[in-house]
């Protein structure tokens, strides 16, 4: 059986990031980042705090415009496209801070997420499909802010799945979760990926990244520092050094 890295070579890129820079005044959050995301893969993005991971996601989804550089999605340049058009093309995001509608119920949150692509009559059924995918069947009438943090994380993932994405960006989907819940999220991601959705994940939890068994990119000071399989990255002394803060 071929390794993830061997099969990766021949695959088509769904997303190409070309020399993207994002400057906030004197701060260079992204400083010439280039990266390929292959169609159908699970791609983990690592990096110490301040490496530019979240800014990277924001420029991909379009809530931040890069200072320079190009973002190509399915062969088309989307660098100047507003976020809602990118979502229409099949991109989707789960933000690091979950940004759910706390005063509404789970069902109402999903209603908002589903309404753009579904008729009202179909939404109840779709809600059930999504809730079963995140193992929260029967939770539609619960108030969002009364859910536990782990449940909220899963609903946030369901919200980003509701727009029927081809490529989903998950910013720290296991932050603050127990071991059990983390395994649940890994299952959800594997399941989503099996359905043909490309998944890009920002994570810190090494066990979780290993369990995803995908391609790993390491960001440092807004650039691609290293990439490869999990084992290659784990064995990379330079990566260890930047994580320990010695670089």
């Amino acid at each position: 059986m071929k390794s993830v890295e061997q099969t990766r070579e021949g695959k088509v890129s769904i997303l190409e990031v070309r020399d993207v820079r994002k400057y906030y005044g004197g701060i260079h959050a992204l400083d010439g980042l280039s990266m390929d995301i292959k169609k159908g893969e699970v791609h983990c993005v690592l990096g110490p705090n301040g490496a530019g991971k979240s800014t990277f996601f924001k420029t991909l989804i379009g809530t931040e415009r890069p200072t320079s550089g190009r973002i190509i999605y399915n062969g088309a340049d989307i660098t100047r496209l507003p976020a809602f058009r990118r979502v229409g093309l099949g991109l989707s995001v789960k933000f690091q801070n979950l940004r759910l509608f706390g005063d509404l119920t789970v069902g109402q949150n999903l209603f908002i997420a589903l309404r753009r692509t579904h008729r009202v009559a179909d939404i109840a059924e779709q809600t059930e499909v999504l809730l079963s995918r995140i193992h929260l069947l029967g939770a539609e009438n619960r108030l969002m802010r009364q859910l536990s943090h782990g449940e909220q994380q899963r609903v946030a993932i369901a919200m980003s799945l509701a727009t029927q994405p081809q490529l989903i960006l998950l910013d720290e989907p296991t932050a603050g979760l127990s071991v059990e819940e983390t395994r649940l999220v890994a299952d959800i991601i594997a399941n989503v990926n099996r359905h043909g959705v490309t998944v890009v994940v920002i994570e810190h939890d090494m066990d979780f990244i290993r369990s995803l068994n995908g391609h790993v990119s390491v960001l440092h000071y807004g650039r691609l520092f290293a990439q490869g399989s999990f084992d290659e990255i784990a064995a990379n002394d330079d990566v260890r050094r930047i994580y320990l803060g010695a670089a």
Binding site: F84, V87, S92, F101, I112, R115, R116, T117
Partner: peptide
């Protein structure tokens, strides 16, 4: 609902495709 979503979080509403 879209209106309320906009009130609560504009960026999040846009990233749901609106």
């Amino acid at each position: 609902y879209k209106l309320i979503a906009c009130r609560e979080d504009l960026d999040r509403t846009e990233t749901m495709g609106y």
